[in-house]
């Protein structure tokens, strides 16, 4: 479904990604692992059209994404939960959700799609705070809001950059279980996170990125069978 082929991308001065490839199949949960500063967020940015690309190709369901403006990419069905959550501080929780609302591309109503009510059912904590300002939420609530906001776009692929960074363990558990629910519903997901245990419990396949290059890819069993690799590339 998502096909990232050999991309080079970076910022004004520095190239960060040197020929990175990644594939995600329909309904698959894939993780992107790597230590700090290895280029994970940059790869997400390149997919979303936020970080400029120098070479390579990104295809989503047969549509070329690279070179398109980021709103067009999002409308193809990619929902982003960004690093740092980036809740709009001048919008209420309700507005943070509604501003992202979009009907799915496939015939509307065919499958159950995400609405404000469904997101509130999914994260009841948000229901109590709909009229609060985005910035009045706790970190965990903000992350739920960021996920809810991405779901409101009715994505076919959900991308989470740092799914549980800096959150209390209780909240992390909620988020992991919600993500598992999404997986069961058949949503494709690309996750970046530091919690290897939770990730291996959830994901089908993994990529390890090191200094802007993919150094390993494989399934969960293979990843777990080699603790050395985790040590070397992830520092765990």
């Amino acid at each position: 479904m998502l096909d990232v082929k050999n991309i080079h991308a970076g910022y004004d001065q520095a190239e960060v990604l040197f020929g990175v490839s990644l594939h995600i199949h329909e309904g698959e949960v894939v993780t992107l692992l790597g230590r700090n500063g290895m280029g994970k967020s940059t790869l997400v940015g390149a997919i979303m059209g936020i970080v400029p690309m120098r070479a390579g190709e990104i295809v989503f369901d047969g549509t070329r994404l690279d070179g398109q403006p980021s709103h067009a990419i999002a409308r193809c069905g990619l929902g982003l939960v960004p690093e740092g959550r980036r809740i709009f501080p001048n919008l209420s929780v309700r507005e943070n959700l509604l501003m992202a609302e979009r009907l799915p591309r496939a015939v509307a109503g065919q499958c159950e799609h995400w609405t404000l009510e469904r997101v509130v059912d999914f994260f009841p904590r948000l229901g109590e705070r709909l009229n609060n300002n985005g910035t009045q939420l706790s970190g965990g609530e903000q992350q739920m809001l960021a996920i809810g906001r991405a779901l409101m776009t009715n994505p076919r692929l959900l991308i989470l950059d740092e799914a549980t960074e800096g959150l209390a363990p209780v909240i992390c558990d909620v988020i992991w279980s919600r993500l598992a629910t999404l997986k069961r519903a058949g949503l494709s997901i690309l996750i970046i996170d530091k919690d290897l245990d939770a990730l291996t419990g959830l994901a089908d396949r993994h990529y390890i990125i090191e200094k802007g290059e993919m150094v390993w890819e494989g399934d969960t069993a293979t990843l777990l069978s080699d603790p050395d690799r985790c040590e070397r590339f992830l520092g765990v």
Binding site: S70, H71, A100, A150
Partner: peptide
């Protein structure tokens, strides 16, 4: 209005609004 939300979202974080599908330009 919805347009108003997009305008405010764009005014506070243009990149993020774009990544959520708002045609900021």
């Amino acid at each position: 209005t919805r347009v108003g939300m997009w305008i405010r979202a764009g005014a506070s974080d243009r990149v993020m609004a774009g990544a959520l599908g708002v045609d900021v330009p």
